Amino acid sequence: MENLTIKPNYVDLFSCIGPKCADSCCNDWKIIFDKQSYKKTIKHKYLADLAKFALRETKESDSSWAVVKLDDNGACPFLDPQKLCNIHAKAGEKALSYTCKTYPKNEQLIGPDKYQSLFLSCPEVTRIVLFDDNAFQFSANENGSKAALMPSPPWLEKSYEYSLDLLLNSGLSWQESFLAIGLLLKTSNEVRLDKANIEQLSVRYNQLLNMAQMGMITEQFNSIPYTPLPQKHTFVAIHDALCKTHSRSTRARFESINNAIAALCNEQNDYSIDKINEIWNTEVTTKLTEHAELFTKFILYSMFHDHFPMHEDHDPEQVLQQLIIDCFMIRCYLTAVYHAENGLTEENIIKCFQVYHVVRQHKPKFIERIKNILSEYGLTSLPAAISLLKTQ
């Protein structure tokens, strides 16, 4: 049997919009040249002179041989006045560096199969994922490879499948579904550590479906207290980490979000999480009725993109905590922008998700910082992590 390539429709729907992009990857982006692309560029008759001062050799490896020296405005010097790529125009797509040739594409080999996705750090990808009705039609096609590769662990595949089902088919809100998924992952982790057998994972999944249908998950979610102080500390710490890590933190797009957040400071110049949550409850949720599936789509994307709860360094419960943090932070950003702009346009929604993911998807140190913050503020238990989603 041939191995499969699995992808959602948003991969095929994407097409780079070039100079029309609101946050081009040709600006403020570390562009790495592999050795082959570098050699082709410095020897090209129309690119050689420019390449002499536009590229800096690093020789870290054949795949990381040189980097682009961005200009004073953070732009790639290979852009022409119309913000189109001179390398692509004069030497063709094959001459592009691996970074430029592949971004925003993402491909993972999981077991014997390839999973194709795109990065939300690209505004056009975010637009398609969140707003195109056809984004989540999936295909699985034979890719011509018959390599006999080890399958991924059964506990991972069942956890992935059951988590998606609890999100989409349990009748729970997306916030409540996190609680059900968290309870599932406790069993997943036991199976992963050989403390339980794989059959117990299926038993637990069916128990959770029954609990959801009986209203028990909703009841448990409602019993978790609203804790504004840990929310405030967590938000301030993670936003500070984002500001320090973001490669475009001095650009207008990022500053518009940062200024919106600053406008919600109280008289003591302190962030008011109560105010943020009040605006979310009384204003934003009523205005977002036409986008009621916004966070469900985002969580579905995240689970597929990362093959949830797969992670090299974090256990399944820590992976869930990271995803909860993502939703918490983006909810706060949406609220702040709504308050500043007296509404939320589609472009502003895209901006909140995309700006956050420029760091979230490309800076491993930021992910480690989130993990440490959760530990610092005692948010590593499931109820404590879920409490970040409570708004009253």
Rank of each mutant, 00 (worst) to 15 (best):
Leu208Val: 09
Leu55Gly: 04
Val359Pro: 02
Ile128Asn: 00
Phe136Met: 14
Leu167Cys: 04
Ala292Gln: 14
Ser63His: 05
Ile276Arg: 02
Ile276Asp: 00
Thr289Phe: 00
Asp28His: 15
Met214Gln: 14
Lys244Pro: 02
Thr245Arg: 01
Ala212Ile: 14
Lys232Val: 06
Leu84Ala: 04
Glu290Gln: 12
Ile349Ser: 01
Cys21Ser: 10
Thr245Met: 06
Asn169Ile: 00
Ala135Phe: 00
Glu157Asp: 12
Asn169Cys: 02
His233Trp: 04
Glu107Phe: 01
Ala51His: 06
Asn259Ala: 02
Cys100Asn: 01
Leu164Gln: 12
Lys232Ile: 06
Cys26Thr: 07
Thr245His: 01
Val358Thr: 13
Leu130Pro: 01
Leu79Arg: 10
Asn206Met: 15
Lys7Val: 02
Ser152Asn: 09
Asp113Asn: 15
Asn222Ser: 14
Phe78Pro: 01
Gln200Ser: 10
Val337Arg: 06
Ser202Leu: 06
Ala262Lys: 10
Ile31Trp: 02
Leu323Ala: 08
Asn143Pro: 08
Gly378Met: 07
Thr218Ser: 15
Glu346Arg: 14
Lys45Ile: 11
Ser272Glu: 00
Pro230Tyr: 04
Leu164Asn: 15
Lys390Arg: 13
Lys7Asp: 04
Val125Pro: 02
Arg253Gly: 01
Phe295His: 08
Phe328Met: 11
Asn141Gly: 05
Ala340Asn: 06
Phe366Met: 14
Thr41Asn: 07
Asp62Ser: 09
Phe298Ala: 02
Ile128Tyr: 00
Phe131Glu: 03
Asp133Pro: 01
Ala51Asn: 07
Val11Thr: 13
Leu156Asn: 03
Ala212Met: 13
Val191His: 03
Val236Met: 04
Arg251Ile: 04
Leu79Met: 09
Ser173Met: 07
Thr380Trp: 03
Asn189Thr: 13
Lys94Arg: 10
Cys352Trp: 02
His246Trp: 06
Cys76Met: 07
Leu96Gly: 02
Arg56Ala: 09
Cys243Phe: 07
Arg56Phe: 00
Ile6Cys: 06
Glu293Tyr: 10
Gln36Val: 10
Asp313Trp: 05
Ser97Val: 03
Ser64Phe: 08
Pro154Trp: 03
Leu300Arg: 15
Lys40Val: 07
Tyr38Asn: 10
Met310Tyr: 09
Glu142His: 08
Lys363Pro: 00
Asp313Glu: 13
His357Gly: 04
Lys158Arg: 13
Phe353Ser: 01
Ser97Met: 05
Leu130Gly: 03
Tyr162Ile: 08
Phe131Asn: 02
Lys351Met: 12
Pro19Phe: 06
Glu2Trp: 05
Val67Asn: 07
Lys90Ile: 04
Pro383Ser: 08
His233Tyr: 06
Thr102Phe: 11
Pro153Met: 05
Ile373Cys: 13
Cys16Gln: 01
Asn141His: 07
Phe136Pro: 15
Ala262Trp: 01
Asp34Leu: 12
Ile181Cys: 04
Val355Thr: 09
Ile110Asn: 06
Asn348Thr: 09
Leu50Gln: 11
Phe53His: 11
His339Gly: 00
Pro151Thr: 10
Ser173Cys: 08
Gln321Trp: 02
Lys351Phe: 00
Pro364Ser: 05
Pro228Arg: 07
Gln361Asn: 11
His44Leu: 04
Glu199Ser: 13
Asn106Glu: 12
Tyr103His: 12
